[in-house]
Structures are given as C-alpha cells and as structure tokens.
C-alpha cells in the first residue's frame, strides 16, 4: 500500500505527520499532563505501548475483521491494552499513576491510536504497521517532551525535578497551570506551521 521506504515510514511520524504538531491529534493528554516532564514522559510511553501493541494486533488480524465491525473490534483491542497499561502502572509506579489520574484510561479515546489503526494498520503489513506505530509513538513522545520541558523549566525552574534555573529566576506559575498548556501549545503550533511553510516555499 505505502510506497515509502522503511526509514521514511519511521521518520514521517517525527515531523511530516507528527501527530501533535502536524495532525493536531491527541491534544487532550498533550494539554493535560505536560506540566511536569516525568508525567509527560510517562504518558507518552503509556500511549506508545498501547499504540504499538494495538497496531501489531490489528495489522495481524485485519483479514478476519469484517469492515462493518472493525471500529468496534479496534476499540476492544485498544481498551484491552489501555487497561493493561493502567493496571501495571498502578501496581508498579503508584505515584505516577496517581498524578496521571484518569488520563491513562482516557488513552482509549486518544485519536492517534484509533486513527493509526483505521488509516494504516488495517491496510498494511505487520512489519510496516510496527514501524509506523513506532514512528508515531516517537513523534508523540517527542511532542510531549518538548511541551513538558518548556512548561516545567519555565513554570517551576526544574527539569525532571532537577533545578536548572538559577536562584534569580522567578518561576512563571502560569506555565504549569492549564492556561500555560494552551499558550505553549499554541505558540509551538504557530512555529511548526511557520517552519512548514518555509520548507514548502523552498521546495
């Protein structure tokens, strides 16, 4: 189906089709949990886990699923992996699980995951789907990391809990509050669009 090379299949998720900056998917967790880098990272990894495994399963059983019930089956598959992720986090990383609260179960309705199944895994081989899911996950983790780094550094003056700003710095509390998420994401989207236009014009 896809005419890209394996490398391109992976790289597209990082920029060209980056789920957050280019496709504006999965904005709910992106906005909600990126106040601290550790939360953003955990959220990104949990989503990656769900995305990669659902892509593997969906692409391997795509031939058996009648198209009328495909969305229902995808959701069941995704929900399974989400629940696994949720339970495991609660068991092994109780603190992060508490911080992320309902956002882990909410991965079920993250558009990135269902979107990739519908747009890619249901039409491509297992190998390609895996690479695609890997690329998309990396793109998502990357976006969350950028966003949460900016917010944590400006909002608290720390990165992953380590003090990075000097004592002269007065933390911008707004950055770890919900408005900070909107401000940062808005500005990042603006910059992404600007870069996109520039590269397009050059071509």
């Amino acid at each position: 189906m896809s005419t890209r090379s394996i490398g391109q299949e992976f790289v597209k998720g990082l920029w060209d089709e980056n789920p957050v900056f280019r496709q504006l998917l999965g904005l709910c967790p992106t906005l909600a949990v990126t106040g601290w880098v550790i939360n953003g990272l955990a959220m990104g990894l949990a989503t990656s886990f769900v995305l990669i495994f659902s892509s593997l399963v969906v692409s391997s059983i795509k031939k058996f699923i009648p198209s009328q019930v495909r969305i229902a089956s995808y959701i069941v598959i995704i929900a399974t992996f989400v629940t696994i992720a949720d339970r495991c986090m609660a068991a092994f990383f109780p603190l992060i699980s508490k911080n992320l609260g309902p956002y882990i179960p909410l991965i079920v309705v993250n558009c990135i995951i269902l979107g990739r199944q519908e747009a890619f895994s249901s039409r491509n081989s297992v190998g390609r789907s895996f690479i695609d899911a890997l690329g998309m996950s990396s793109g998502f983790v990357l976006a969350l990391l950028i966003l949460s780094s900016i917010r944590e550094v400006l909002g608290v003056g720390t990165f992953l809990g380590l003090q990075v700003m000097g004592t002269w710095f007065k933390p911008w509390i707004i950055m770890i509050l919900p408005p900070g998420a909107f401000l940062t994401l808005g500005i990042l989207l603006g910059i992404a669009l600007h870069i996109e236009r520039k590269t397009k014009a050059r071509k």
Binding site: F64, V69, A72, S73, V76, I77, T80, T83, I84, R87
Partner: peptide, 17 residues
C-alpha cells in the same frame, strides 16, 4: 469475530488483574 476478540481481551485482562 467480535466474540473471539472479546473473549481474548477478557482473558488477557483477567490475567493482568
């Protein structure tokens, strides 16, 4: 298909739980 998918998921979840 749906039953199969459901059963599989269910058993998986039961194990994890």
């Amino acid at each position: 298909v749906l039953t199969f998918v459901g059963l599989l998921s269910g058993s998986f979840l039961a194990t994890v739980d």
